[in-house]
């Protein structure tokens, strides 16, 4: 399996077409890009190929179903799809519910702040670059954390990880979150 580069295609615009216009062509585009990644992700998490395909399909259908909840000022498309896949994985492999936080108070008329949306995009790019620049050993650890196969000692190693960008990003994420809560 080859490592793929994160591409700069504007997936936000594609997902917004699904959200606002129920555009099936946009859905096909999104499926062709993300379903193979979801399958790879779910297989690395311990699913067999058949289960991984089935889950990938369901995750994509859920993306369609929940597109109204997508807020481009708070998550990139990859991040948002990741959270759906993670919850599906907990359900499929561990047979558990996933408690999610209470929704933010959020009116139907609210439109995300342009600046926040841009900021998030830049953030995502910086993060992807920072991840790509990590020594492969550390990258490996992070991936393993997300596939749920870190040992106890490895988790300790991870805590000191020089992903300093995360800390500064939390501050920015908080700003955007508070903006989102103001637009009610």
């Amino acid at each position: 399996m080859e490592q793929t580069k994160a591409d700069t295609h504007d997936w936000t615009a594609v997902l917004v077409r699904i959200r606002d216009d129920r555009d099936e062509t946009a859905f096909v585009e999104l499926f062709r890009h993300f379903a193979p990644r979801l399958k790879a992700f779910l297989m690395r998490s311990g699913g067999d190929p058949a289960l991984a395909e089935e889950c990938a399909q369901e995750v994509m259908a859920t993306v369609w179903q929940k597109s109204a909840q997508f807020d481009p000022a708070r998550a990139s498309v990859a991040t948002w799809i990741f959270t759906i896949a993670r919850n599906r994985r907990i359900d499929a492999l561990r047979k558990q519910k996933r408690p999610e936080p209470e929704d933010l108070p959020w009116g139907p008329e609210a439109e995300p702040d342009q600046e926040d949306q841009l900021g998030l995009q830049q953030d995502t790019e910086t993060l992807t670059e920072a991840m790509a620049a990590l020594p492969s050993k550390q990258r490996d650890l992070i991936e393993k954390a997300y596939f749920g196969d870190l040992t106890h000692n490895e988790i300790a190693d991870l805590t000191g990880l020089p992903l300093g960008t995360i800390k500064s990003r939390i501050r920015l994420a908080l700003q955007r979150l508070r903006h989102a809560m103001d637009r009610k």
């Binding site: 994160a6 193979p36 990644r37 297989m43 395909e53 399909q57 995502t124």
Partner: peptide
């Protein structure tokens, strides 16, 4: 902490983005 989780989720998004691809047949589409 909500913001910290959302920032951490972005790492998960980056992992999904760069994990690689496994072929999915059109039947699933």
């Amino acid at each position: 902490c909500r913001a910290a989780i959302e920032a951490q989720d972005a790492v998960g998004g980056a992992v999904l983005d760069t994990i690689g691809e496994m072929p999915v047949s059109d039947a699933f589409l």
